[in-house]
């Protein structure tokens, strides 16, 4: 009963969103409406209401964030908006808050581990880079990414050769995906700023 009511309401919402998407002509408005359509699709999955829903939502979120990033980059290149903006807003909060705030977020993300912890820690790192500025130290991120690959392959061999230590392998793989997601997400934070490369 609850499932049927939810399904009817969500189809109504999808109809409204796609009607707006059809009527829209500006490209940036269409990009924003794509985000709305992603949220509505996730509601459709969440209505399944078992552990299967949770297992389906996580890949949906991964695909959604990568889609938004790729489409926004394509849009920026297509509209020739590649140079930095002139007026960058500075808030008073951005001098005092980010150190403690992003420290808490990164610590909590490391405790969670996996893609969830990587996204949370990546948000903290983006916040820190956005507020404090950055000095183009990409080689650290590349090194971390290489170690993450090594950890991943080590976890794979543990699964294959000594399966009785599976918990150790799960922990190594979780740490590796945390490193990789956090490094990739922190690259986004360096894209906004006053220093032109």
């Amino acid at each position: 009963m609850e499932y049927v009511i939810g399904l009817l309401l969500i189809f109504l919402a999808v109809l409204v969103a796609f009607y707006a998407l059809v009527r829209e002509t500006d490209d940036l408005h269409r990009l924003l409406l794509t985000d709305l359509a992603e949220i509505l699709a996730l509601v459709l999955i969440a209505l399944v209401a078992t552990d299967l829903a949770e297992a389906l939502i996580l890949p949906g979120l991964v695909v959604g964030i990568s889609e938004i990033m790729a489409l926004s980059e394509i849009y920026l290149v297509k509209e020739k908006l590649t140079k930095q903006p002139k007026r960058v807003v500075k808030l008073e909060i951005m001098d005092s808050a980010p150190a403690i705030m992003s420290l808490i977020l990164v610590m909590y993300g490391i405790v969670l581990s996996g893609f969830t912890g990587g996204a949370l820690a990546g948000l903290g790192v983006i916040f820190y880079f956005m507020c404090k500025g950055h000095d183009e130290r990409f080689e650290i991120i590349e090194t971390a990414s290489g170690y993450a690959w090594v950890m991943w392959i080590a976890a794979f061999f543990i699964f294959m050769l000594i399966p009785q230590y599976w918990f150790f392998g799960v922990m190594i793989a979780g740490g590796a995906i945390l490193l990789k997601v956090m490094g990739k997400m922190s690259l986004i934070g360096t894209m906004r700023g006053d220093s032109d490369v």
Partner: peptide, 17 residues
């Protein structure tokens, strides 16, 4: 509290540098 402070700071025009 951080959110409310940020809104107030942005409303008053941000940090002038």
């Amino acid at each position: 509290t951080l959110e409310a402070n940020a809104i107030a700071s942005a409303w008053s025009g941000g940090l002038k540098d």
